Amino acid sequence: MLDVVFADRAVAFDPGTLVVADLHVGRAAASDVEVPLGERADLTGRLSNVLDRLGPETVVVAGDVLHEFGRVSHRAAETLDALDEACRDAGAELVLVAGNHDGVLANAWDRTVHDAYRVDGCARDVLVCHGHEEPEGSADLYVVGHDHPTITIEGQKRPCFLYGEKTYRAADVLMLPAFSRVAAGVSVNGMRARDFQSPLVTDADSLRPVVWDQGRHEALTFPPLGRFRELL
């Protein structure tokens, strides 16, 4: 199994890189549904909790940092600043990778916006990208977001990670759930490769769901979807 540390909608690699995906800052303001928690407080609070627990040196957002298209709203820019401040307060650097919703991200970020980010110091060659298009670089492991995976178990929909061994360019793929709790998740129970939006998913049956149990603070690993569907 994958040698990483799982957390609440986040994953950490040695020697100190945390990866989250799909913050969708600005989604709450664009949504028609009522959000029980303020977007900024929810994102920064949950990120700070993970930072306190794992103490990374680098935090990488694997795309769809924003949910903005024509311009970056003042509120979204302030939320991005608050996330950056939360990382700095924890002694970590925030690194942003562009997703398909990030066309105007450079207007709100005065540092490099990466197309992909290679994790330093890992035993494996790990490349973080959003996953909405095929990456240019090769790697042993691709870490992506984009599809917002969830799995429905006993009628309850849970955010999940999806891990596939040797499923893309003979390399592994790890898909992260959306860190945003406003962005709707898609239930992967019955999905085939053609149903995923990411071209890095070539064999859905081989993807192994991993669910973070918040109450027990542990990751629950399930059989690959091809076999797991028979148990649901």
Rank of each mutant, 00 (worst) to 15 (best):
D3R: 14
V4N: 10
F6C: 13
A7H: 14
R9Q: 09
P15A: 14
G16P: 15
G16A: 12
V25M: 02
A28D: 09
A29K: 01
P36G: 05
P36C: 02
L37E: 03
G38L: 11
E39D: 04
R40T: 13
T44R: 08
S48Y: 07
S48L: 04
D52M: 14
R53I: 10
L54H: 02
G55K: 15
P56R: 10
E57M: 10
T58F: 12
V59Y: 12
V61T: 07
A62L: 15
G63R: 08
V65Y: 06
L66P: 05
H67F: 13
E68K: 03
G70R: 12
R71I: 03
R71T: 13
S73W: 08
S73Y: 01
R75Q: 13
A76E: 03
E78C: 11
E78I: 06
T79M: 15
D84G: 00
C87A: 14
R88W: 12
A92I: 15
L96A: 02
V97N: 06
V97Q: 09
A98V: 06
H114S: 09
D115E: 12
R118N: 05
C122L: 01
C122D: 02
D125N: 02
D125E: 04
V126Q: 09
L127Q: 08
L127D: 00
V128I: 11
V128H: 04
C129V: 15
H132Q: 00
H132K: 08
P135V: 02
A139N: 00
P149L: 07
T150N: 00
Q156K: 14
C160W: 04
C160I: 09
G164E: 00
E165C: 11
K166G: 08
K166D: 08
R169K: 14
L174S: 01
M175I: 11
S180K: 15
V182D: 04
A183W: 00
G185T: 07
M191E: 01
R192K: 03
R192C: 01
R194D: 04
D195P: 03
D203N: 15
A204G: 01
P209Y: 09
P209D: 02
V210E: 09
W212H: 11
W212L: 13
D213N: 15
H217V: 13
L220R: 14
T221N: 08
P223L: 10
L225R: 01
R227H: 10
F228R: 05
L231F: 13
